[in-house]
Simulated scan of single mutants.
Amino acid sequence: MVHLDSAPALLVVDMQNGFCHKQGSFAKMGMQSEPTAIVPHINELRSAFRAANIPVFFLRTGYNADYSDRRGRDRRDSVEKLQGLIRGSWDANILDELTPEPDEKVVDKTRNSGFFRTSLESTLKERGVNHLIVTGVGTDVCVESTARDAYQMNFAVTTVSDATGTCNKPDHLAALHALRMFGGTASTAEVIEALQKSQDLRNQRMS
C-alpha cells in the first residue's frame, strides 16, 4: 500500500516521439517502448494530480545538433545516424497525447538520470516537493536511473508499475523488482486511492 507524503509531485520521464512513436528513431532501431498501455494511465494520474493542485513535471532527453553534449558519442551510433533526439526536433518532442500544459514544467536532460546537470533538484526543492511519483520510459534505463537518484537525494519515491514501460516485459519487470529497494512501486489505481485519502485527511483537518 502506497502512502503519499505531504508534498508529492508527478514526474513523467521521456515520453517522447523518439522513444515511443512508431516513426521515432528508437522504433527504426527496433527498440521502441510501446506507449499504448501506459499513456492512459499517465493521463489519468495527471488529471488526478492537477485536480488536487499537485505539480506535474516532465523530463525530456535532447541533444545538440552535433551531439557534443551526448555521453560516449560515436558517429557510427544509430541515434546519430538517424539524427535522433536533437533538441527542438519532432523526434525529441513529447508525444501529442501527453502534450504538457503551460503550468507543467519540462526539464531537459542529456543523460539517463533526470538529476544529472539539470534544474530538476532545485526546482523540486523550490516547490517543496518531498515525494516523487515516477512514470514514463524506459523502466530499466531513465526511469530507474532517475528514481534511484531521487531516493539517494532523500526524496520519497514511488514508481508506478503500470504507467512505466520499456522495450520488453522481462526488462520492465526486472527494473520494477530492483526499484522495490528504492522507494517501491504501486499501480495507478493505488496511487490515486492514496491521493484521495490524503485529500480527505487534509479536508478533515481544515473543517
Score class of each variant (00 low, 15 high):
residue 194 A to I: 09
residue 10 L to P: 05
residue 138 G to M: 12
residue 21 H to I: 04
residue 165 G to Q: 14
residue 168 N to D: 14
residue 15 M to S: 07
residue 35 P to A: 11
residue 63 Y to A: 03
residue 142 C to L: 13
residue 114 G to K: 04
residue 98 L to A: 08
residue 163 A to Y: 09
residue 90 W to I: 12
residue 89 S to R: 09
residue 74 D to N: 12
residue 92 A to L: 01
residue 139 T to V: 05
residue 27 A to G: 00
residue 16 Q to K: 12
residue 110 T to M: 11
residue 191 V to C: 03
residue 194 A to M: 07
residue 11 L to V: 06
residue 154 N to Y: 00
residue 11 L to I: 07
residue 6 S to N: 05
residue 101 E to N: 13
residue 72 G to E: 06
residue 30 G to L: 15
residue 144 E to S: 11
residue 155 F to I: 05
residue 123 T to L: 10
residue 114 G to M: 03
residue 207 S to G: 15
residue 24 G to P: 03
residue 81 K to S: 00
residue 156 A to F: 05
residue 155 F to T: 04
residue 198 S to I: 00
residue 59 L to G: 03
residue 197 K to C: 13
residue 12 V to L: 07
residue 2 V to F: 08
residue 122 S to I: 02
residue 148 R to N: 09
residue 156 A to R: 13
residue 16 Q to R: 10
residue 180 R to H: 07
residue 104 E to R: 05
residue 120 L to I: 06
residue 157 V to I: 14
residue 144 E to T: 10
residue 85 L to R: 14
residue 188 T to K: 05
residue 112 N to A: 09
residue 104 E to M: 07
residue 169 K to N: 04
residue 61 T to Y: 04
residue 75 R to E: 14
residue 197 K to L: 15
residue 194 A to T: 06
residue 69 D to E: 11
residue 190 E to R: 12
residue 9 A to I: 04
residue 53 N to K: 15
residue 139 T to L: 05
residue 107 V to R: 01
residue 179 L to E: 11
residue 18 G to E: 12
residue 158 T to L: 09
residue 84 G to N: 10
residue 189 A to F: 02
residue 59 L to S: 08
residue 142 C to G: 08
residue 39 V to Q: 02
residue 180 R to Q: 10
residue 5 D to R: 12
residue 139 T to G: 02
residue 57 F to N: 03
residue 103 D to A: 03
residue 122 S to Q: 07
residue 151 Y to L: 00
residue 70 R to L: 00
residue 47 S to N: 06
residue 153 M to N: 08
residue 152 Q to I: 15
residue 5 D to G: 11
residue 81 K to I: 00
residue 99 T to V: 12
residue 134 V to R: 01
residue 189 A to K: 13
residue 73 R to G: 06
residue 69 D to G: 15
residue 142 C to H: 07
residue 52 A to L: 10
residue 191 V to A: 03
residue 52 A to V: 10
residue 188 T to G: 04
residue 199 Q to I: 13
residue 177 H to P: 01
residue 203 N to Y: 13
residue 171 D to I: 02
residue 84 G to I: 11
residue 37 A to L: 14
residue 207 S to W: 15
residue 143 V to W: 07
residue 171 D to R: 12
residue 82 L to E: 14
residue 65 A to L: 03
residue 120 L to V: 06
residue 134 V to E: 06
residue 113 S to W: 05
residue 4 L to Q: 01
residue 180 R to G: 06
residue 125 K to I: 08
residue 96 D to S: 12
residue 155 F to G: 05
residue 41 H to T: 03
residue 121 E to W: 01
residue 123 T to E: 03
residue 181 M to F: 07
residue 92 A to R: 08
residue 4 L to I: 06
residue 56 V to H: 08
residue 37 A to P: 13
residue 11 L to E: 05
residue 13 V to E: 03
residue 52 A to Y: 08
residue 122 S to W: 02
residue 27 A to H: 04
residue 15 M to A: 05
residue 73 R to F: 07
residue 192 I to G: 11
residue 75 R to V: 14
residue 26 F to G: 00
residue 105 K to T: 14
residue 49 F to G: 05
residue 136 G to H: 02
residue 200 D to E: 15
residue 75 R to C: 06
residue 83 Q to N: 13
residue 55 P to F: 00
residue 6 S to L: 08
residue 87 R to P: 10
residue 184 G to K: 13
residue 197 K to F: 15
residue 134 V to T: 04
residue 5 D to P: 00
residue 84 G to L: 11
residue 65 A to Y: 01
residue 177 H to K: 14
residue 164 T to I: 04
